[in-house]
């Protein structure tokens, strides 16, 4: 192990000789060592990726083609091969399994659009509001980053307490303090659960958007704004004509990363709804698959659902990157 983590040091004199003899042609990168050096540098990363990501993933894909239930769990090799059977069960939207998967998928789509959209909006608003120096700016910046720094489960558990019907802060605020009419509603069961999980996820995610956008804004030179102000541009117009285009590289990455995190979110429903009672309105897809696998011991269909989820994410991501690249070429 240790032999691979520390790549051997190349003999420097030969390196220099080779570099000077070859020189750099047309911006081609110079070789600082033997052809194997980059591979040696990558080797530890590749090893761990294979061990933890790739091989288990390949195994998971294989599982999606076999009928892995409790009877075969002890001896996977004996599980019968069912071809695309697990997939057709998952995608048969007339059956109970397919219908609930579809419901979960739609819930997740709505969840993702709302959470990513609103988080981005809040992050942008905060970043712009704190763009110019004023007294107390550092305080706000520090404060806004706290939800991001708090361990995920600690933040979600706090919200779970706040969403309790009779003893929670949310109902107390809405009905006792603000005097909303009617009875205090449930937040963690029934349809309100969707709202609850969206709020929690935004609370957790928006500081990240804020952080990235704030970092991005620091590279926008102040004099650009001043020049456009002289031209009579209003703040909103400045934002759309200067800020937004300058932040494009950040936004391209930010939106993608937030999309992937939110769509795959497992922790929020797991901690918020507990491991036994999940309302259909908050049945996010990762959590749905987890339950389909572990609660009913039906790992074959669970794996098939995961592979479908992965394919969906791959397609969306590729389309997104294609779209983004084409636009940047045109621009």
């Amino acid at each position: 192990m240790s032999a691979t983590t520390v790549p051997p040091q190349p003999d420097s004199s030969t390196v220099t000789k080779r570099v000077t003899s070859r020189g750099s042609k047309n911006g081609q990168h110079r070789r600082l060592g033997g052809w194997w050096l980059p591979y040696a540098l990558l080797a530890p990363a590749i090893l761990f990726e294979l061990l933890i990501h790739i091989v288990p993933m390949a195994t998971g894909v294989w599982v999606s083609f076999i009928k892995l239930t409790q009877i075969y769990l002890r001896n996977w090799g004996a599980a019968p091969f069912v071809g695309l059977g697990n997939y057709s069960v998952s995608l048969d939207f007339n059956s109970a399994i397919g219908k609930s998967l579809l419901n979960s998928f739609l819930v997740t789509c709505g969840f993702t659009v709302l959470v990513v959209g609103i988080s981005w909006g809040l992050g942008m608003a905060a970043a712009v509001a704190l763009q110019r120096a004023f007294r107390g700016r550092g305080l706000f910046r520090t404060l806004f980053l706290i939800p991001y720094a708090i361990p995920i489960y600690a933040g979600i558990i706090t919200w779970k307490f706040m969403f309790q019907k009779d003893t929670g802060a949310v109902n107390h605020l809405l009905f006792d303090n603000l005097g909303l009419p009617g009875d205090k509603p449930f937040w963690l069961i029934g349809d309100n659960a969707f709202l609850a999980i969206v709020i929690v996820a935004i609370w957790r995610l928006w500081p990240f958007a804020f952080l990235m956008l704030m970092a991005g804004l620091q590279s926008v030179p102040q004099d650009v704004y001043e020049a456009s102000a002289v031209d009579g541009a209003k703040p909103l117009r400045q934002w759309s004509s200067i800020t937004l285009p300058m932040l494009r590289p950040v936004n391209v990455v930010l939106v993608l990363v937030m999309f992937l995190w939110t769509f795959n979110d497992f922790n929020t429903p797991f901690v918020l709804f507990g491991s036994t009672a999940q309302p259909p309105a908050g049945d996010l897809i990762s959590f749905h698959i987890y339950n389909a696998s572990f609660l009913t011991w039906n790992f074959g269909t669970g794996a098939a659902m995961s592979v479908l989820l992965l394919l969906f994410l791959l397609v969306v991501t590729s389309a997104y990157l294609l779209f983004v690249n084409r636009r940047s070429k045109r621009a």
């Binding site: 069961i189 309302p279 259909p280």
Partner: peptide, 14 residues
């Protein structure tokens, strides 16, 4: 779990 959800329906006014 089906029953949990039906109780939730009842509790939320359905």
């Amino acid at each position: 779990k089906g029953l949990s959800q039906e109780f939730a329906t009842i509790a939320t006014g359905g």
